[in-house]
Simulated assay, not measured.
Amino acid sequence: MSNTPAHESLPTIRADRNGKDGALGGVGGNGDGPVVVGLDIGGSKTHGALWVGGTLVREARAGSANVQNVTPAEATGNLRALFEELLAPTQAHDVGLVVAGSGGVDTAADAERLRGLIAPNTPNAAIDVVHDTRLILAAGGARTGIAVIAGTGSVAWGVGDDGREARSGGWGYLLGDEGSGYWVAREAVRRALHRHDLGMRPDTLDTAVLALNGVGAVPELIGLFHSGAGRTYWAAQSRAVFDAARDGHEDAAAIVDRAAADLTRLVLDVATVIGVPGPIVLGGGLAMHQPDLQARLRARLAAEGVTAVVFLTEDPVMGAKFLAGGRA
């Protein structure tokens, strides 16, 4: 395992509608029991869930509310649309607790900013803002261990039995996000451009990348990549690589294997710091829906002696109920 130094603990903001820190006397609600909202705010979408008295009663989805990916105005609008779908008109005041997990929550200021965007939609609620890796671990039913997100971006976070926390990655696409959907797609574009520079004709992977992006020649990818197309757009293009790898394309398989190696490194970094090898709970679009990546991750982790590996089969937002239960 590597000797990566410990990272700062990821912040949790617990505050009532007046911004006062403190635990809830109860999570509020109506005659049917406490009303709790969970939010999983990813790079491409926001997934909300509503529990009343511990029973899941509704889910809703909207665009991303992560201000690293969208403007504050877009985040505000997406949250408003989600809450309008998630809550009945009179339910907003009944919500006692919101548990929101989001990428990009790296400081207390980040968490407070997101709390401010959420608060107008649930005026009586306490709001807990956590890094989205905490939702992953909670959705796996674990209080200690290591959570990994491999989706639009990538990050690992863990907590040991003694409460010590560590994190590796999650620095954003300009600094890292190795093994993420964005990274996989970017590697395919880089490969296509390199092959073109060498005078090679597009092969099946290059052709798939061109088709997905609606361009007819490899050099057009340069302008497109530096245009307004964001990392969410490019992350969606990663499917070309996974499809090609499944069909036996060697370079595509090599990209997937490098992604698995990078994600394994994140796990080992965290395990070195917190002193526990698992369980490892993996979520995010790639980790949950790409069997080839899953198999390669299992093999690489097993080679390092890590065998307690769980790939989520339910959405990470379901971890909000687990966290809410621990809070109450």
Results as ranks from 00 to 15, higher is better:
residue 1 M to S: 14
residue 5 P to V: 00
residue 7 H to C: 13
residue 8 E to C: 02
residue 12 T to L: 15
residue 12 T to A: 14
residue 15 A to H: 11
residue 17 R to N: 11
residue 21 D to I: 02
residue 24 L to K: 05
residue 30 N to S: 15
residue 33 G to D: 10
residue 36 V to E: 04
residue 38 G to Q: 08
residue 38 G to R: 03
residue 39 L to W: 10
residue 40 D to F: 07
residue 40 D to H: 10
residue 41 I to L: 13
residue 42 G to P: 09
residue 44 S to C: 08
residue 49 A to Y: 03
residue 56 L to S: 09
residue 56 L to A: 11
residue 57 V to Y: 07
residue 59 E to H: 13
residue 59 E to L: 12
residue 61 R to I: 13
residue 63 G to M: 06
residue 70 V to Q: 02
residue 71 T to H: 01
residue 72 P to I: 05
residue 72 P to N: 07
residue 73 A to M: 02
residue 76 T to D: 12
residue 77 G to H: 11
residue 78 N to C: 02
residue 81 A to H: 07
residue 88 A to S: 14
residue 88 A to M: 13
residue 89 P to T: 12
residue 90 T to A: 15
residue 98 V to K: 08
residue 99 V to G: 01
residue 99 V to F: 01
residue 104 G to E: 09
residue 104 G to T: 08
residue 105 V to H: 04
residue 106 D to E: 15
residue 106 D to G: 14
residue 107 T to A: 07
residue 108 A to M: 10
residue 115 R to K: 10
residue 115 R to Q: 09
residue 124 N to E: 11
residue 134 R to S: 07
residue 135 L to P: 03
residue 135 L to K: 06
residue 139 A to E: 06
residue 140 G to T: 00
residue 140 G to K: 02
residue 143 R to P: 04
residue 145 G to N: 01
residue 149 I to V: 15
residue 149 I to M: 09
residue 151 G to M: 10
residue 152 T to I: 09
residue 157 W to V: 03
residue 158 G to H: 03
residue 167 R to I: 00
residue 168 S to Q: 12
residue 173 Y to W: 14
residue 178 E to P: 07
residue 182 Y to P: 09
residue 183 W to K: 06
residue 187 E to P: 03
residue 188 A to D: 04
residue 192 A to N: 11
residue 192 A to D: 08
residue 194 H to E: 12
residue 196 H to F: 15
residue 196 H to C: 05
residue 197 D to H: 12
residue 199 G to C: 05
residue 199 G to T: 09
residue 200 M to Q: 15
residue 200 M to W: 00
residue 202 P to A: 00
residue 204 T to M: 13
residue 207 T to M: 08
residue 209 V to Q: 06
residue 215 V to C: 12
residue 221 L to I: 04
residue 221 L to E: 02
residue 224 L to W: 02
residue 231 R to A: 04
residue 233 Y to F: 15
residue 233 Y to E: 01
residue 234 W to I: 03
residue 235 A to M: 09
residue 236 A to H: 13
residue 238 S to R: 12
residue 240 A to M: 10
residue 241 V to L: 13
residue 242 F to P: 01
residue 242 F to R: 03
residue 247 D to Q: 15
residue 248 G to L: 06
residue 249 H to Y: 14
residue 255 I to Q: 03
residue 255 I to M: 08
residue 258 R to G: 01
residue 260 A to P: 07
residue 260 A to I: 10
residue 263 L to D: 04
residue 264 T to A: 11
residue 266 L to D: 06
residue 272 T to N: 14
residue 273 V to I: 11
residue 274 I to W: 03
residue 278 G to A: 08
residue 278 G to K: 05
residue 279 P to Y: 09
residue 280 I to N: 05
residue 282 L to Y: 03
residue 283 G to M: 08
residue 283 G to Y: 08
residue 285 G to I: 02
residue 286 L to R: 11
residue 287 A to G: 01
residue 289 H to Y: 05
residue 289 H to Q: 06
residue 294 Q to K: 12
residue 296 R to A: 10
residue 300 R to L: 14
residue 300 R to T: 01
residue 302 A to V: 00
residue 303 A to W: 06
residue 306 V to E: 04
residue 306 V to I: 15
residue 307 T to D: 13
residue 307 T to P: 07
residue 309 V to D: 02
residue 310 V to A: 05
residue 312 L to R: 04
residue 316 P to H: 04
residue 316 P to A: 15
residue 317 V to S: 01
residue 321 K to Q: 14
residue 325 G to N: 14
residue 326 G to T: 13
residue 327 R to E: 11
residue 328 A to I: 14
